[in-house]
Each structure stands twice: as C-alpha cells, then as structure tokens.
Simulated assay, not measured.
Amino acid sequence: MAIPNRKVVITAYGPPSTSLQIVTDNISPPPKDHVQVKILYAGFAGADINMRLGVYPLQSAPPFTPGYCFSGRVSVNGPGSSKFKPGTLVTALTKYDSDAEYINIPEKYLVAIPDGVDPKVAAALPVDWATAYGMVSRAAKVSPGQRVFIHGISGAVGQGIMYLSLLQGATVYGTAAERNHAALKEAGAHPYLYTNKDWIAAMKDLGGVHAVFDALGFESFDESYSILTPNERSVVVAYGNNLNNLTGAKRRNPWIPIAKLMFKNLYFWSNKGAVFYFITRDQKTYEPELQQLLNMTRDGIITPPIKAVWEFDDIKEAHEAWGKGSGMGSPVIRIAHDA
C-alpha cells in the first residue's frame, strides 16, 4: 500500500523563498525490479541550484523534486528485486527525487555502503566525488609530475579533484577564498585568490598546467585554456556553469560558451584540448567507480570532507547559503536520523 512521503518540490524557477516547497504526497510500493529506500541524507550540489534557476542542461520543467543523489536504507523490495535485504545501507545517483523521505529506484542503480562508511559521507560520493574521479582518471588522465589547476578548490567537487590529483602525484594549484588557504596549503595544494587574476600570470610563469578543471563557465573557459601548457598534452575539463550563481550576475545561456570551448579542439596542431564532462548512472563506469570510492573511504585512503549538514526543513536556507560561508567540501541534506 502507498505510504506518506514528504518531499521538496521546485514549483517554479526563481529564488528559494518562492520556488521551493515541502509537501506531503503518497509513494506507491516499488514496482518490478525497483527498491524503495528510506533516505537518510541527500547530496546537495550546484546542479540543484541550477535546476531551481532553470539553467541546468536538459532538465525537467517544474514541478519536480530535486536531489541528485542519496544514502539511505532499503525499506521494501519490489517484485524481482532481491539483491539487497531490508535495512541494507545503500547509495545511488538519481538526478531527481532524492530530497524526499522515500524513493523508488531501479535496483541496478543501488550500491551497498560498506561497513564503517558514514552515510552522510556516502551521500557525497555519487555526484561530487564520482565526478572528480572520472575527470581526474579518465578525462584528464592526471599522472605523476603533472600540474593541475582547479577553480573552486575548496568546493565539493574541487576537494575531490584536489585529493585524487595529489594521490596521483600531481602538483595542485587552484582558486579559493583566503579563509581556506591555510587548510589547503596543509593538504598540499597551492591556493590563489579567486577575487583577482594573479593566478593566470603565475601559471604561465610555470610553463602552464596539464589540466584545468573549470566549473565556472562563460569567460572562465577562455582563461582556463590560456594557462594550458603548449609543450605537452593538456586539457580543460569543464563541468559546470556556476559563475552566475556565485557572483549573483544575470543568468546567461550556457550553450554558447560550451560550444566555443569545444571548438578549440579543432586546433589539431596544438597539444591543447577541451572536454565538457558529465556523469550519468547508465555509464558503464558508474557502479565500479562509485564502489571504488566507497572502498577507498572505508580503507581511509580518502576522507571526503562534509562542509555542512542541513536539516530537511531548512532546505530554503540551504539553497540561500550555497557557495557561501566557511568550511570546505560537500554540503548534504539530512532527511532523517538513522535508527
């Protein structure tokens, strides 16, 4: 039988005060090959912000429930589903519907959380760290001795890129608020202020970098391309268009700057390239890479930092605070306290 399900709904594009509502609806039992999960934590990313503003590529129109990923406990198995027992801790990438008490999801997308991994940390892995892992290992192929530059090195994905690049033996540079510089230096990175462009000259003086990870978009793509080293294979890995959200500027169409960045790949005589990176749960790399990250967390190889834990009822405040305040790493939304 159906059960009550509180969830966030984006009712229209706009500011959190007018576009977000928490409603109570009914959720049906899971259909064939699906599992119903009681959500403990939902990941909270720039994609949620962009969806609320209506600028996320190929997104649904309102009304819809946001929430790109979650961690939770299996509640009920639908017909044909038997891989996970009720009570098993699981995590998954969803794109929508994770900002809710319950979710019905195809069993094939669920990945078990190993013993010893905190569910709130697990909620940061399917988007923030899986994005970072794919970009570092596959898009940029970061290797020992290389130099990488990260825009927003103290952010959710930026932290993942930093730690994974350092594990690969790369030297890491990037932009961040001055309040986070000491902690970034202690971690092994070389931070620059994002409020000026001193990093451009500094990177060129080094001979350029082998990879730039850029979630800002627009004119930032050209600046990122300008600091690539011309002497070896180098690449801009773009994965967002968050500049407007961070600066409060008027929303712009992201497709033109993305197209301009991709056009640079026609400069076949150079060693420079560009790629716009994204992840989906249907990619063949989705499950093995997420499982690898969970195992690395369990084994203490990585310790994904959690910037903030927002309560479910404070979802509007969480949206208002995104990209602001002290601390580094991934914010998450606590949907329920684990029993």
Rank of each mutant, 00 (worst) to 15 (best):
V237R: 09
D128F: 08
Q36M: 06
G300S: 05
M328R: 15
F218Y: 15
V23E: 14
T175Y: 07
T65Y: 02
A215C: 10
I333D: 13
V142C: 12
R73W: 10
L216V: 00
G145D: 00
S71V: 00
V332R: 04
F218R: 12
H190M: 15
S330I: 08
N231F: 15
N231Q: 14
E223G: 05
K272G: 09
F312C: 10
G72Y: 14
D118S: 08
I301D: 06
T229Y: 02
T175A: 08
H181Y: 06
E320Y: 14
G325Y: 08
G72H: 12
T11M: 02
P63E: 07
A130W: 08
D313M: 13
T297E: 03
M1N: 12
I279E: 01
A201W: 05
P288T: 12
H190K: 12
A249R: 08
P15L: 08
R73C: 13
P106T: 03
Y192P: 04
A42H: 05
L20C: 07
R251A: 13
N196L: 01
F84G: 07
T285G: 01
S326Y: 10
P331R: 11
P230L: 02
T247D: 09
Q291L: 09
R179H: 05
I306A: 12
V76M: 08
G273M: 04
L20M: 12
S28D: 15
F268R: 14
P16R: 14
V117Q: 05
V275G: 08
Y239W: 07
